[in-house]
Nucleic acid binder design. Structure first.
Lengths: 202, 202
DNA sequence: GACTAAAACGAACGTTCGTACTATTTTAAT
DNA sequence: ATTAAAATAGTACGAACGTTCGTTTTAGTC
């Protein structure tokens, strides 16, 4: 069907606009103008603005996974993959995968006090993301790459915080050292919890 | 003058609303309703919506300084004051000084891609904040409390990131361990850079 | 208590928002 | 080529947006 293709291209653009203007700033009229469609024609693809927001979040999540997770899965589980996720995240900011910075950081702060289906969806995805980080950390423990007393939730919290901090410094403060600072902090933290390679070898 | 008092009470409410709904979501009509004023009466205190936003940011900044900095200045400069700022920040989140979470974290992410006077004001204040953190760190170095090889910009980046991470985990994820995790991370980081007390004594 | 300036109000402006309903065109299947 | 379905456009609506205007109320001064 043609409709599905159109819907997809609407959502690609919607994701970009929402990363720049926020999910509330994402407006049907503006989106239609940009895509040279009629408001009503665009609207027909979604039943409501809320549905458009939810679909946009879904599309953003697919882009996020494709850009950050899929490449990292090429690395062997354990420390290498964990590090690859971190590198992937920083490169995702540097490359401007979303033109307005990390879609989910922005959405998290925009909706952290706006209860409703949109908030729940964002929270769910952020739970998934933190959960995935924790899983990668746990794998690194299981492989013997990280010390056994590492608390996956704690470390996931810290890494995610550093990522958000990088996004903030990079996009708002235009600190061109933002990525480097985040990388330095991430590497220092991970190295401090690492089990030296010779201790793992057998 | 009565006008100044009214203006002040408008701004107090505007700060709360903006922390919940964002600076764009802050609406003159809604604000007037909440304060049982007419739109036009309220509007007259500010020449435009943008001026209202700028004044709101100013008011938020005063609250921020009052809640976070002023108390920390009671501590002696150096490590104690630096730690007090960190504790102050976490308590500021826990106490819900802004009902929708940290005003400036939210504003930073909302306006990081919206050029204009509002963005510039936010960026300026965030530069001030990071600068103040760096100054506190430098003092701790000067006092001999932190190792001389500490990079103030790097450490300020890391601390700020942990604060934003705490805000995120606390307000969006409802992680009731958010504050504890952030505190643990902050303390571990600061302790790792600390010069033991006996080395400082003379 | 009268006068005046500041402050608040009420109504209206033009615009844009999301949404609903109807008509037309385009697409895909026969 | 015909036809049914799907996709898009068109038009209209009420509500809310920021803003302007003229009027009324309030507060402070003589």
């Amino acid at each position: 069907m043609k409709g599905e293709r159109t819907r997809q291209s609407i959502l690609e653009r919607a994701v970009d606009v929402a990363s720049l203007e926020g999910l509330e700033g994402l407006t049907i009229g503006r989106l239609a103008d940009e895509l040279k469609m009629s408001k009503s024609g665009l609207f027909a693809h979604f039943g409501s603005k809320e549905d458009l927001q939810l679909a946009t979040i879904q599309a953003a999540s697919e882009r996020y996974i494709r850009e950050i997770f899929t490449p990292a899965l090429l690395q062997p589980r354990g420390f290498p993959r964990l590090m690859a996720i971190c590198e992937s995240w920083l490169s995702y900011i540097r490359r401007g995968v979303f033109p307005g910075g990390c879609f989910f950081a922005a959405a998290s702060f925009e909706f952290d006090s706006r209860p409703g289906p949109v908030q729940e969806r964002i929270r769910g995805l952020m739970d998934d993301w933190i959960g995935a980080l924790e899983r990668a950390i746990r794998m690194a423990k299981d492989e013997g790459h990280l010390r056994p007393d590492v608390d996956p939730s704690q470390l996931a919290f810290e890494l995610n915080a550093l990522f958000f901090g990088a996004n903030f410094a990079f996009y708002l403060r235009h600190d061109e050292q933002a990525i480097a600072r985040a990388r330095r902090a991430v590497e220092a933290r991970l190295e401090s919890l690492r089990v030296p390679a010779e201790a793992t070898a057998r």
